[in-house]
């Protein structure tokens, strides 16, 4: 299928998409390195390899729209416009992080930007997206909500309940199942009983399967769901087949994967390389445009890490603040 609408993206939009995908990639590659060196505490779950999904989806969104994210939330944050330096500082646990260092990688959020948080609970986000969609509908903002969830979350009751409620309440919400092949170490081909798209159809919403390595395919696939949501016609579903380049969490030896699997994916399926090839062959963008973005992104990431490492940790009183708006 020729993704006609996606190719109608103008030069600025294509540059923005490329910049975001490249930013996510370099952010995650650097977090991988920094985590390995011991500079980052806790758990991190990297989005490298899946960039086309977050960016292809969020290209359709504005600040009035919301997303609910997952464990693997850095890519969603960047695609939704969160500040990269603030994100890096957050992951380093510093006071000037997006959440003051109190959330970290698994809870990174920027509610004002419509990013309702990465989520430490698999399947935790879908009900929240329904709520954001309900608020948009009730307050007549014209906004929509996207519930990102992985193949693991697709088997949680919260996801099924939310899909049903979204149909019953006719909510402007789009469920995006990012099926990266593994829920932790368990293959999605084993864990998803039946067919995810048919599940969506069973809940009365249109569902399509899409290649998550192809930015243009994802962007195209989101067109009808967004139009349907904005028109007040209810929810939709995307089953995005994609791959991750790193483990479930950093430190995962990934012994459940086939030998050479990730190398093959990087060589043959990479979403950023595919994007480059597509836009340069179509002569919409030139290599030098992309190379300039690559340099700028690397500088941004370098500066983000430098600033994060130099930043102060939250002061001791921060332990006790922000539990409540008010508490006598």
């Amino acid at each position: 299928m020729e993704p006609s609408r996606a190719l109608q993206l103008n030069r600025e939009e294509l540059l923005r998409a490329y910049r975001q995908m490249r930013t996510i990639r370099e952010f995650e590659e650097r977090v991988h390195t920094e985590f390995s060196s011991g500079a980052i505490p806790g758990f991190v779950h990297l989005y490298a390899g899946e960039e086309a999904v977050a960016v292809g989806v969020c290209m359709h969104l504005t600040e009035r729209d919301c997303i609910a994210s997952t464990h693997r939330g850095h890519g969603h944050c960047i695609a939704k416009g969160c500040d990269v330096k603030g994100m890096m500082a957050e992951i380093f646990g510093r006071a000037d992080g997006l959440c003051g260092g109190k959330g970290g990688s698994m809870h990174i959020a920027d509610v004002a930007k419509g990013m309702l948080g990465a989520n430490g609970i698999v399947g935790g986000g879908a009900p929240l997206a329904c709520g954001a969609a309900l608020a948009a509908k009730t307050l007549k903002t014209g906004g929509v909500a996207v519930a990102f969830g992985g193949d693991g979350a697709s088997n949680q009751g919260t996801t099924a309940e939310s899909m049903n409620l979204a149909t019953v309440w006719k909510l402007p919400v789009i469920f995006v199942l990012e099926d990266n092949g593994y829920a932790e170490s368990t293959a999605s081909s084993w864990s998803i009983g039946g067919d995810a798209v048919k599940r969506a159809e069973g809940f009365g919403m249109p569902g399509v399967r899409v290649d998550g390595h192809d930015f243009f395919a994802v962007y195209e696939a989101m067109h009808d769901p967004i139009a349907r949501a904005r028109a007040g016609e209810g929810p939709s579903f995307l089953h995005v087949k994609v791959n991750r380049y790193y483990g479930h969490f950093e430190g995962d030896a990934q012994t459940y994967r086939a030998p050479g699997e990730v190398q093959r994916l990087r060589a043959e399926m990479d979403c950023i390389e595919r994007f480059r090839k597509r836009v340069t062959e179509a002569k919409v963008l030139e290599e030098k445009d992309l190379a300039a973005i690559d340099r700028e992104v690397l500088e941004l990431i370098e500066e983000s890490v430098r600033a994060a490492k130099a930043a102060a940790y939250p002061p001791p009183p921060a332990l006790l603040s922000d539990v409540y708006v008010s508490y006598p």
């Binding site: 608020a135 009730t138 409620l165």
Partner: peptide, 25 residues
């Protein structure tokens, strides 16, 4: 529109209430 009956689906609607509270309701 302001008094919403729900299916029997506590996870979904209690969570939706939380999400809606984050966004102005």
């Amino acid at each position: 529109e302001r008094v919403l009956d729900t299916p029997i689906t506590e996870s979904a609607f209690i969570g939706a209430a939380a999400g809606a509270a984050l966004r102005g309701l």
